[in-house]
Design a protein around this nucleic acid. Structure first.
Length: 736
DNA sequence: GAGCACTGC
């Protein structure tokens, strides 16, 4: 076999562009020393180990690249209301900067420093680390808050959280008045939440600094002539009644070298650069384009295995199917090698894989073995697998995009961006120098987009718009997005929200329906379904349904046990469709737990539930998630005063409620067995995972329309065609 | 006849 790879050029560096002020750590000598005060640890037999651990921590902190610029960074924050910090991987920005600011007095007057992360795990692990570095109990001075888990208290001053959670917090406290500083971390990822948050924070910052200036002026006036005009008096009184709003410091942290976009968005905000600590990674390209990238990946895996020094291999593939097929091929080819060269272990990792199986990717390979991790994008940012020295990157990713006209999402394989390619190659340089093999020519790299298209430009905006409306942003088309979604996309979502009854004729948030919908942490269609269900007397069932629909696939069918999995699924399946099937699964899990619940701890319960899930081919992570969502939204609807009742065996009532809720997603069977979606006129097919895949009823409602190999609809229930005009006359009568 | 990755007081 001919190796597709030849060395072309070493590690890439991108030019740093102005307006970056370089804050390179001059000398790692002793520019600053840690001013953290650590409470005296109680004396115990462990104190020797304890103090050596503390010494290690202190040493580690001092050795971080960011440590030498503490004072300069604090000064930058003091002098700039908005600061962009470009911090390379390993600079220590996420753990250190909040501590610097705390020590510099940014939490005086009981204010908090908030740091947002796009992912839950990051918020939790970083908070734990920082609490340890500060020598405090987690949840005291340092804490975190994520959905379903709050480890904060009134004494929390450094608070890590998910960006989505801060958005939710803004609904209750529109000025985010408890925060003196907000740090938006990993802003380069440009998740929907980050982008909405940036726009919101910009507004809040403006409002808060205007407030402080007004205050200063009013106080001055008072000093000058001792009297206030009526208007001033009124403003002043109003403000005295409300809380104090000191100006908000905003720090945007990004790992991407292009800070210009952020800087321009924040009116030419200052940007500084902090060096990172990454080991060098040599990057190699192929001479020619590879027609078959899976084959090229396979050849490269064996080339590394046979010729390179020890170290694990990380291969980026686009999905489960590719991963499973490469895994099979590696095992096959391994058999053709001489006995001594067969010490190669494949481990798959992708999001839908049950956690126990995911864990295999983190375990060290047996002595003498090399591990090859076959991963989706999950290994790009979400998880870091130790021991990786080689990265194989075909340069592709499966990405979601959204067509507002058709109201359809698609999941297609597209080339990655330059910044993604750099992120992937960086995965080889975490613990030592590494190598990255890009399975395409260098000329192709040059053609890649600089950065990935922000998610907000490729998703359904209904939820975002509902949130913004609830936050008092009425002019969505005029909202200052960093990158504005297309007009068509905004209009489509406004229209959808109007049809759901969340918006009035004047495009204002309706009361109580729109307001209630915005309060629920759900897709607007699901929130509407809950409100309707209270009128249809089936809220009990609908709470379960929307919780189950809000998580990743509940059923897990590994290829090698497909038949067994199908049999298991049949036990739950309902002839009415997937919605009732999901309700059956939930009830079955409830019943199973009820029998064994007495006196069991949460851990124990989780454990026996996992076992039950495994036996029934159910993804326990998804089910647990659904149970969490269920209890959270149940709390919400009870608080709203909705009537939680069960329709018992009256499935007609429940199906009518499904039709009333999901009328925008109704479809009719066509003679060939395909379906026509009534709203868009598109021809679609039932996804093979649906319990109605064979039955093909005449009229259905569905929850998801995604184009992959075909236009598939998922999560389907049978309804009566006549119900549509009866239950959704606002839509179906006007059309006819 | 098939499921990129995240997230929500």
């Amino acid at each position: 076999m001919e190796p597709p790879i030849t060395a072309l050029r070493p590690h890439l560096t991108l030019a740093v562009e102005p307006p970056l002020a370089l804050l390179c750590p001059p000398n790692l000598s002793s520019l600053t020393e840690s001013r953290l005060t650590q409470p005296a640890a109680p004396l115990s037999r462990l104190s020797v180990f304890d103090s050596s651990r503390k010494q290690n921590i202190a040493q580690h902190r001092k050795s971080l690249p960011i440590a030498s610029v503490e004072k300069r960074l604090v000064d930058e924050v003091r002098h700039n209301d908005t600061l962009i910090i470009v911090g390379e991987t390993g600079s220590g920005k996420t753990t250190q900067l909040p501590q610097f600011l705390f020590n510099a007095g940014f939490c005086r007057d009981g204010k908090t420093i908030g740091i947002t992360q796009p992912r839950r795990v990051a918020a939790v692990t970083v908070a734990k680390r920082v609490a340890e570095e500060c020598g405090v109990d987690l949840g005291q001075r340092v804490g975190y808050s994520i959905r379903f888990e709050d480890a904060t208290s009134i004494s929390t001053r450094i608070k890590y959280m998910t960006d989505g959670l801060l958005l939710r917090e803004a609904l209750l406290d529109p000025y985010l008045s408890r925060y003196s500083v907000i740090i938006v971390d990993e802003a380069h990822e440009r998740t929907v939440h980050t982008d909405v948050l940036l726009g919101l924070l910009k507004n809040i910052q403006r409002a808060r600094s205007k407030y402080s200036n007004d205050r200063v002026n009013i106080e001055k006036n008072k000093e000058n002539n001792g009297t206030l005009s009526d208007k001033e008096n009124c403003v002043f009184l109003k403000q005295c009644q409300s809380r104090k709003f000191p100006p908000l410091k905003l720090i945007i942290m990004s790992a991407s070298l292009d800070a210009r976009g952020f800087s321009e968005y924040f009116g030419g905000a200052r940007a500084v650069h902090v060096k990172g600590r990454q080991f060098p990674v040599d990057t190699f390209y192929t001479h020619h384009a590879e027609p078959d990238y899976l084959d090229a990946a396979l050849i490269t895996i064996f080339q590394i295995h046979l010729e390179e020094s020890p170290g694990d291999i990380l291969v980026f593939l686009t999905g489960q199917e590719e991963i499973e097929s490469v895994e099979r091929l590696v095992k096959e080819r391994l058999q053709q090698l001489p006995e001594g060269s067969r010490k190669l272990l494949t481990v798959p990792i992708f999001s839908a894989l049950p956690s126990e199986k995911q864990m295999r990717a983190f375990r060290q390979a047996p002595a003498g073995f090399r591990k090859v991790i076959l991963a989706t994008n999950i290994a790009e940012t979400s998880v870091t697998i130790p021991g990786v020295r080689y990265v194989i990157d075909p340069g592709l990713v499966k990405a979601r995009s959204y067509d507002p006209v058709k109201g359809m999402e698609s999941l297609i394989i597209v080339p990655i961006s330059k910044s993604q390619a750099l992120q992937r190659s960086g995965r080889a340089g975490r613990e030592g120098s590494g190598k990255c093999f890009r399975l395409y020519p260098e000329s192709e790299f040059d053609k890649l987009e600089d950065s990935t298209k922000p998610e907000i430009k490729r998703c359904n905006l209904s939820n975002v718009i509902l949130q913004l409306k609830a936050l008092g942003v009425d002019d969505i088309l005029g909202f200052d997005f960093m990158e504005k979604p297309s007009r068509a996309s905004i209009v489509k979502s406004l229209e959808q929200l109007f049809l759901l009854g969340a918006l009035t004729d004047e495009c204002k948030l309706s009361d109580p329906v729109g307001r209630q919908m915005a309060q629920l942490p759900l897709d607007p269609v699901y929130s509407r379904a809950l409100i309707l269900a209270s009128q249809f007397n089936c809220l009990e069932e609908m709470l379960i349904t929307v919780a189950m629909l809000s998580v990743e696939s509940i059923f897990y069918a590994p290829r090698e046990k497909l038949e067994e999995a199908r049999t298991a699924m049949r036990c739950f399946s309902s002839p009415e469709g997937d919605h009732l099937t999901l309700v059956n699964v939930y009830h079955a899990s409830d019943e199973f737990l009820d029998k064994r619940m007495v006196g069991l701890s949460k851990e124990k319960k989780d454990k026996i539930l996992s076992k039950w899930c495994k036996e029934n081919f159910i993804n326990s992570r998804s089910l647990r998630h659904a149970r969490d969502i269920h209890s959270q939204i149940r709390g919400h609807v009870e608080q709203m005063g909705l009537r939680v009742a069960s329709c018992g065996d009256d499935m007609l009532q429940f199906r009518k409620c499904l039709a009333a809720s999901f009328f925008l997603n109704a479809a009719l069977r066509q003679p060939e067995g395909t379906y026509r979606a009534l709203a868009s006129g598109q021809v679609v097919q039932i996804h093979p995972s649906s319990v109605l895949f064979q039955a093909k009823p005449e009229c259905i409602v569905f929850n998801e329309l995604v184009q992959t190999n075909h236009k598939y609809i998922r999560n389907i229930s049978r309804i009566d065609y006549l119900w549509l005009s009866e239950l959704a006359p606002q839509y179906y009568c006007s059309q006819n």
